[in-house]
Design a protein around this nucleic acid. Structure first.
Lengths: 206, 206
DNA sequence: TCAATCCCTTAACTTAGGTTAAGAAACAAA
DNA sequence: TTTGTTTCTTAACCTAAGTTAAGGGATTGA
């Protein structure tokens, strides 16, 4: 049960769909029937740095899972790019909206490095939910957890200063600083690049 | 199938569980079996202004649905109350975390006015998910929608100034200004009460 | 009715981020 | 290597929020 790969791909051949869906089931109790369902339905791709997986206004029809690399999520506000989040290995990207309505996305997803991603079409997801209530149940729980984590992150973000956010980010995601330029991090922290420089200067001399 | 009411309650007697669970199913396709399941399992209460439905550190074991009134969600940061959100009629309050783990809450829920709420214990929710996959499916979709809405709200919040947030709040939730003092709104907007006064002053003279 | 409390506003001063501009450092390409 | 581009930093000045302090209006309770 090998995964579909793009021609140019040089992924090791033993890379299995199992790896792709493990993040979904988050358990090893996956049945053979479930595994078979996914075979050939999930695509894995290498994507070059600079590629946009999603552009503002586009209608999104798949979720992505990031196995390697870094993706920046941003949107435009008054002509400026406002970076909303960074995704790194192990994160999944989806716009958990109303899957029945095809709403234009408000975000951009830009690869900050070469990436390896899996593509999980909404159609497959819907079919999966229908055929495997067990998996739908796992998805529900997973979404609730993600929601809760997100709320906690946001509440921490909102009640801290840019300097505190910066120090927190260094602690929790040090790898980011190798992957993306500081001015994107500045935007993510809610300040201009010049201000981030000042913050770094202040912290250096204390 | 009348709902359980607290003794002091003066709710009209025809207030049905149906109303309580409609927000869950968000449809009228509720079966008799489903209705019967909820009978007697969901409590409806009147709560006085000033009461805390949840205190920081407490372990939460129920979701609430707000039929009337206003609840403020906040947490402490450096000895200050940081207001995170306001709930009004029709909103539901839950900490969609991992229901299997009993994690102390990071938030406080304080009634800003006399409220009418329904109490939906996690245990009942778990049983519901088990017995009615259809309802679990509806809950999954509902949570995904809520998550998506929340993300949009946050992204709007983060890319606007306190003044813009203030004007936006007046437009979207004018009733709030009758329900809660301005200094709580200031905290919600991310500024001190003095700054909100200045913002209001500036907007007045323009 | 009076006092106390709560809430909101204003003002003077401080602090930190935004803006503009310039230059240095790092990196990539010719 | 040289050139050009991208990224980061610094400085001077502007703007808006934080801080501290004071006072006024509204509400509540004695």
């Amino acid at each position: 049960m090998k995964i579909k790969l793009t021609k140019s791909s040089k992924l090791k051949p033993d890379f299995e769909v199992l790896e792709v869906i493990n993040y979904l089931s988050n358990s090893n109790g996956t049945t053979q029937e479930e595994k078979d369902f996914f075979a050939g339905k999930i695509d894995v791709k290498r994507v070059k740095k600079g590629v946009f997986l999603l552009k503002e206004g586009q209608i999104i029809r798949s979720s992505y899972h990031l196995f390697k690399g870094c993706i920046r999520e941003f949107h435009l506000k008054d002509g400026e790019e406002k970076t909303v989040s960074f995704y790194t290995s192990g994160d999944s990207l989806s716009e958990d909206g109303d899957p029945s309505k095809e709403i234009p996305s408000r975000f951009n997803w830009e690869c900050m490095s070469d990436c390896i991603i899996s593509i999980f079409p909404f159609a497959v997801e819907r079919e999966m939910h229908k055929r495997f209530p067990r998996l739908e149940s796992l998805c529900r729980i997973e979404t609730e957890k993600k929601f809760s984590n997100y709320r906690n992150e946001i509440s921490t973000y909102l009640s801290s200063s840019p300097a505190e956010r910066y120090e927190n980010l260094i602690k929790t995601k040090p790898e980011l600083f190798q992957l993306v330029p500081l001015y994107h991090i500045a935007s993510y922290l809610g300040v201009k690049p010049e201000s981030l420089s000042r913050i770094r200067g202040r912290l250096r001399s204390s």
